[in-house]
Design a protein around this nucleic acid. Structure first.
Lengths: 109, 109
DNA sequence: AACGAATTTAACTATATAATAAAATAGACT
DNA sequence: AGTCTATTTTATTATATAGTTAAATTCGTT
Protein backbone atom coordinates (compact mmCIF):
# COMPACT_ATOMS: atom_id res chain seq x y z
CA UNK A 1 0.00 0.00 0.00
CA UNK A 2 2.53 2.55 1.22
CA UNK A 3 5.03 1.29 -1.32
CA UNK A 4 2.57 1.77 -4.16
CA UNK A 5 1.86 5.31 -3.07
CA UNK A 6 5.61 5.91 -2.88
CA UNK A 7 6.08 4.87 -6.47
CA UNK A 8 2.95 6.57 -7.74
CA UNK A 9 3.79 9.94 -6.24
CA UNK A 10 7.45 9.66 -7.16
CA UNK A 11 6.49 8.87 -10.74
CA UNK A 12 4.25 11.92 -10.90
CA UNK A 13 7.15 14.07 -9.71
CA UNK A 14 8.62 14.24 -13.20
CA UNK A 15 7.20 16.54 -15.89
CA UNK A 16 8.09 14.21 -18.76
CA UNK A 17 6.17 11.40 -17.11
CA UNK A 18 3.16 13.59 -16.37
CA UNK A 19 3.17 14.69 -20.00
CA UNK A 20 3.28 11.07 -21.13
CA UNK A 21 0.27 10.27 -18.96
CA UNK A 22 -1.65 13.16 -20.50
CA UNK A 23 -0.79 11.90 -23.97
CA UNK A 24 -2.02 8.43 -23.07
CA UNK A 25 -5.32 9.91 -21.95
CA UNK A 26 -6.22 10.33 -25.59
CA UNK A 27 -5.28 6.87 -26.72
CA UNK A 28 -2.93 3.94 -26.24
CA UNK A 29 0.43 4.54 -27.87
CA UNK A 30 3.49 2.68 -29.06
CA UNK A 31 6.77 3.53 -27.31
CA UNK A 32 8.19 5.20 -30.41
CA UNK A 33 5.14 7.42 -30.74
CA UNK A 34 5.29 8.34 -27.08
CA UNK A 35 8.89 9.43 -27.59
CA UNK A 36 8.22 11.48 -30.73
CA UNK A 37 7.28 14.86 -29.17
CA UNK A 38 10.18 14.82 -26.70
CA UNK A 39 13.72 16.02 -27.26
CA UNK A 40 15.28 13.21 -25.26
CA UNK A 41 16.44 9.84 -26.50
CA UNK A 42 14.19 6.86 -27.02
CA UNK A 43 16.15 5.00 -24.35
CA UNK A 44 15.32 7.73 -21.84
CA UNK A 45 11.64 7.48 -22.69
CA UNK A 46 11.84 3.72 -22.39
CA UNK A 47 13.08 4.14 -18.83
CA UNK A 48 10.37 6.62 -17.97
CA UNK A 49 7.84 4.09 -19.23
CA UNK A 50 9.40 1.41 -17.05
CA UNK A 51 9.04 3.65 -14.02
CA UNK A 52 5.42 4.40 -14.88
CA UNK A 53 4.76 0.69 -15.33
CA UNK A 54 6.38 -0.22 -12.02
CA UNK A 55 4.18 2.39 -10.34
CA UNK A 56 1.12 0.86 -11.99
CA UNK A 57 0.24 4.12 -13.74
CA UNK A 58 0.42 2.45 -17.13
CA UNK A 59 0.60 -1.07 -18.50
CA UNK A 60 2.54 -2.29 -21.50
CA UNK A 61 1.46 -4.98 -23.90
CA UNK A 62 3.58 -6.34 -26.70
CA UNK A 63 1.81 -7.03 -29.98
CA UNK A 64 4.20 -8.05 -32.69
CA UNK A 65 7.30 -5.89 -32.33
CA UNK A 66 5.34 -2.94 -30.99
CA UNK A 67 4.80 -2.36 -27.30
CA UNK A 68 1.56 -0.56 -26.60
CA UNK A 69 1.33 1.67 -23.54
CA UNK A 70 -2.02 1.99 -21.87
CA UNK A 71 -3.07 4.29 -19.06
CA UNK A 72 -4.13 2.56 -15.84
CA UNK A 73 -6.20 4.76 -13.58
CA UNK A 74 -6.30 2.75 -10.36
CA UNK A 75 -2.85 3.77 -9.13
CA UNK A 76 -3.53 7.44 -9.62
CA UNK A 77 -6.96 7.00 -8.11
CA UNK A 78 -5.35 5.58 -4.96
CA UNK A 79 -3.06 8.57 -4.78
CA UNK A 80 -5.99 10.93 -5.35
CA UNK A 81 -7.88 9.21 -2.56
CA UNK A 82 -4.97 9.70 -0.21
CA UNK A 83 -4.93 13.41 -1.03
CA UNK A 84 -8.68 13.77 -0.74
CA UNK A 85 -8.71 12.03 2.63
CA UNK A 86 -5.96 14.35 3.70
CA UNK A 87 -8.00 17.35 2.64
CA UNK A 88 -11.05 16.04 4.48
CA UNK A 89 -9.10 15.53 7.65
CA UNK A 90 -8.07 19.15 7.40
CA UNK A 91 -11.68 20.05 6.80
CA UNK A 92 -12.72 18.22 9.94
CA UNK A 93 -10.05 19.93 11.95
CA UNK A 94 -11.06 23.35 10.67
CA UNK A 95 -14.62 22.58 11.69
CA UNK A 96 -13.47 21.58 15.15
CA UNK A 97 -11.43 24.73 15.34
CA UNK A 98 -14.37 26.86 14.25
CA UNK A 99 -16.59 25.22 16.83
CA UNK A 100 -13.92 25.92 19.40
CA UNK A 101 -13.77 29.58 18.43
CA UNK A 102 -17.54 29.89 18.51
CA UNK A 103 -17.57 28.27 21.92
CA UNK A 104 -15.02 30.80 23.11
CA UNK A 105 -17.04 33.69 21.72
CA UNK A 106 -20.14 32.57 23.53
CA UNK A 107 -18.30 32.13 26.75
CA UNK A 108 -16.35 35.39 26.78
CA UNK A 109 -18.79 37.89 25.28
CA UNK B 1 4.10 25.70 -12.06
CA UNK B 2 5.55 22.48 -13.43
CA UNK B 3 8.51 22.77 -11.09
CA UNK B 4 6.24 23.14 -8.09
CA UNK B 5 4.26 20.06 -9.08
CA UNK B 6 7.55 18.22 -9.51
CA UNK B 7 8.62 18.99 -5.99
CA UNK B 8 5.20 18.47 -4.47
CA UNK B 9 4.71 15.03 -5.99
CA UNK B 10 8.31 14.01 -5.35
CA UNK B 11 7.93 15.05 -1.71
CA UNK B 12 4.80 12.96 -1.35
CA UNK B 13 6.68 9.95 -2.70
CA UNK B 14 8.26 9.23 0.66
CA UNK B 15 6.34 7.53 3.48
CA UNK B 16 8.19 9.38 6.24
CA UNK B 17 7.24 12.71 4.71
CA UNK B 18 3.61 11.69 4.20
CA UNK B 19 3.51 10.61 7.85
CA UNK B 20 4.94 13.96 8.90
CA UNK B 21 2.23 15.77 6.94
CA UNK B 22 -0.44 13.70 8.66
CA UNK B 23 1.05 14.55 12.05
CA UNK B 24 1.03 18.25 11.17
CA UNK B 25 -2.64 18.00 10.32
CA UNK B 26 -3.38 17.86 14.01
CA UNK B 27 -1.22 20.77 15.02
CA UNK B 28 1.95 22.72 14.35
CA UNK B 29 5.00 20.97 15.75
CA UNK B 30 8.60 21.65 16.68
CA UNK B 31 11.25 19.77 14.72
CA UNK B 32 12.23 17.68 17.73
CA UNK B 33 8.64 16.63 18.30
CA UNK B 34 8.19 15.75 14.64
CA UNK B 35 11.23 13.48 14.92
CA UNK B 36 10.13 11.76 18.11
CA UNK B 37 7.96 8.92 16.68
CA UNK B 38 10.51 7.98 14.01
CA UNK B 39 13.45 5.64 14.33
CA UNK B 40 15.74 7.76 12.20
CA UNK B 41 18.07 10.52 13.31
CA UNK B 42 17.03 14.08 13.93
CA UNK B 43 19.33 15.16 11.11
CA UNK B 44 17.43 12.93 8.69
CA UNK B 45 14.12 14.44 9.81
CA UNK B 46 15.59 17.89 9.43
CA UNK B 47 16.35 17.10 5.79
CA UNK B 48 12.87 15.73 5.16
CA UNK B 49 11.48 18.96 6.57
CA UNK B 50 13.72 20.96 4.25
CA UNK B 51 12.37 19.03 1.28
CA UNK B 52 8.78 19.56 2.43
CA UNK B 53 9.49 23.27 2.87
CA UNK B 54 11.06 23.60 -0.56
CA UNK B 55 7.98 21.92 -2.03
CA UNK B 56 5.76 24.40 -0.18
CA UNK B 57 3.95 21.63 1.67
CA UNK B 58 4.95 23.08 5.02
CA UNK B 59 6.43 26.31 6.32
CA UNK B 60 8.88 26.76 9.17
CA UNK B 61 8.95 29.62 11.61
CA UNK B 62 11.59 30.14 14.22
CA UNK B 63 10.38 31.35 17.61
CA UNK B 64 13.18 31.46 20.12
CA UNK B 65 15.31 28.41 19.58
CA UNK B 66 12.39 26.31 18.42
CA UNK B 67 11.42 25.98 14.76
CA UNK B 68 7.72 25.40 14.33
CA UNK B 69 6.52 23.42 11.34
CA UNK B 70 3.15 24.30 9.90
CA UNK B 71 1.20 22.53 7.20
CA UNK B 72 0.56 24.56 4.05
CA UNK B 73 -2.31 23.24 1.99
CA UNK B 74 -1.96 25.20 -1.24
CA UNK B 75 0.83 23.07 -2.71
CA UNK B 76 -1.03 19.85 -2.12
CA UNK B 77 -4.20 21.47 -3.38
CA UNK B 78 -2.44 22.29 -6.67
CA UNK B 79 -1.34 18.68 -6.97
CA UNK B 80 -4.85 17.47 -6.16
CA UNK B 81 -6.25 19.79 -8.82
CA UNK B 82 -3.85 18.33 -11.37
CA UNK B 83 -5.03 14.84 -10.51
CA UNK B 84 -8.69 15.79 -10.50
CA UNK B 85 -8.37 17.49 -13.88
CA UNK B 86 -6.67 14.39 -15.14
CA UNK B 87 -9.55 12.24 -13.95
CA UNK B 88 -12.05 14.57 -15.56
CA UNK B 89 -10.27 14.50 -18.87
CA UNK B 90 -10.51 10.74 -18.78
CA UNK B 91 -14.20 11.11 -18.00
CA UNK B 92 -14.71 13.37 -20.99
CA UNK B 93 -12.87 11.01 -23.27
CA UNK B 94 -14.89 8.06 -22.12
CA UNK B 95 -18.03 10.03 -22.86
CA UNK B 96 -16.76 10.89 -26.32
CA UNK B 97 -15.90 7.26 -26.87
CA UNK B 98 -19.32 6.13 -25.73
CA UNK B 99 -20.97 8.63 -28.06
CA UNK B 100 -18.78 7.35 -30.85
CA UNK B 101 -19.80 3.77 -30.15
CA UNK B 102 -23.48 4.70 -30.03
CA UNK B 103 -23.10 6.57 -33.31
CA UNK B 104 -21.54 3.46 -34.86
CA UNK B 105 -24.38 1.29 -33.61
CA UNK B 106 -26.98 3.55 -35.12
CA UNK B 107 -25.20 3.69 -38.42
CA UNK B 108 -24.50 -0.02 -38.87
CA UNK B 109 -27.57 -1.71 -37.42
C1' DA C 1 30.27 33.39 30.83
C1' DA C 2 28.91 28.85 30.70
C1' DC C 3 25.59 25.09 30.13
C1' DG C 4 22.16 22.78 27.82
C1' DA C 5 18.56 22.36 24.39
C1' DA C 6 17.04 22.70 19.49
C1' DT C 7 18.46 22.42 15.05
C1' DT C 8 21.51 22.49 11.12
C1' DT C 9 25.73 21.56 8.65
C1' DA C 10 29.52 18.69 7.20
C1' DA C 11 31.47 14.59 5.72
C1' DC C 12 30.52 10.28 4.15
C1' DT C 13 28.15 5.99 2.01
C1' DA C 14 24.62 3.83 -0.65
C1' DT C 15 21.04 3.89 -3.85
C1' DA C 16 17.87 5.84 -7.50
C1' DT C 17 16.99 8.91 -11.27
C1' DA C 18 17.99 11.19 -15.69
C1' DA C 19 20.32 11.35 -19.60
C1' DT C 20 23.49 9.75 -23.47
C1' DA C 21 25.59 6.77 -26.94
C1' DA C 22 26.29 2.41 -28.57
C1' DA C 23 25.36 -2.43 -28.70
C1' DA C 24 22.00 -6.13 -28.35
C1' DT C 25 17.18 -8.31 -29.02
C1' DA C 26 13.20 -9.39 -31.27
C1' DG C 27 9.90 -9.45 -34.86
C1' DA C 28 8.33 -8.32 -39.67
C1' DC C 29 9.35 -8.39 -44.48
C1' DT C 30 11.69 -9.29 -48.81
C1' DA D 1 19.41 -15.47 -44.72
C1' DG D 2 19.51 -10.66 -44.44
C1' DT D 3 17.48 -6.17 -43.51
C1' DC D 4 14.77 -2.80 -41.37
C1' DT D 5 12.03 -1.41 -37.32
C1' DA D 6 10.89 -1.18 -32.47
C1' DT D 7 12.56 -1.41 -28.17
C1' DT D 8 15.67 -2.61 -24.41
C1' DT D 9 20.11 -3.21 -22.28
C1' DT D 10 24.77 -1.86 -21.07
C1' DA D 11 28.09 1.29 -19.78
C1' DT D 12 28.88 5.76 -18.26
C1' DT D 13 28.26 10.36 -16.02
C1' DA D 14 25.89 13.58 -13.10
C1' DT D 15 22.75 14.70 -9.64
C1' DA D 16 19.38 13.94 -5.78
C1' DT D 17 17.76 11.32 -1.88
C1' DA D 18 18.21 8.85 2.45
C1' DG D 19 20.62 7.74 6.01
C1' DT D 20 24.60 7.93 9.54
C1' DT D 21 27.72 10.22 13.05
C1' DA D 22 30.03 14.08 14.64
C1' DA D 23 30.80 18.94 14.83
C1' DA D 24 28.90 23.55 14.64
C1' DT D 25 25.34 27.06 15.48
C1' DT D 26 21.86 29.48 17.90
C1' DC D 27 19.20 30.66 21.78
C1' DG D 28 17.47 30.54 26.54
C1' DT D 29 18.66 30.07 31.25
C1' DT D 30 21.28 29.98 35.37
Amino acid sequence: MTQNLDQTFASLGDPTRRQILIMLLEDDMAVTDVAEPFDISLAAISKHLQILTRAGLISQEKRGRVIWCKLQMHAMRDAAIWMESFGQLEQVNLDVFEAFLKDQTIRFD
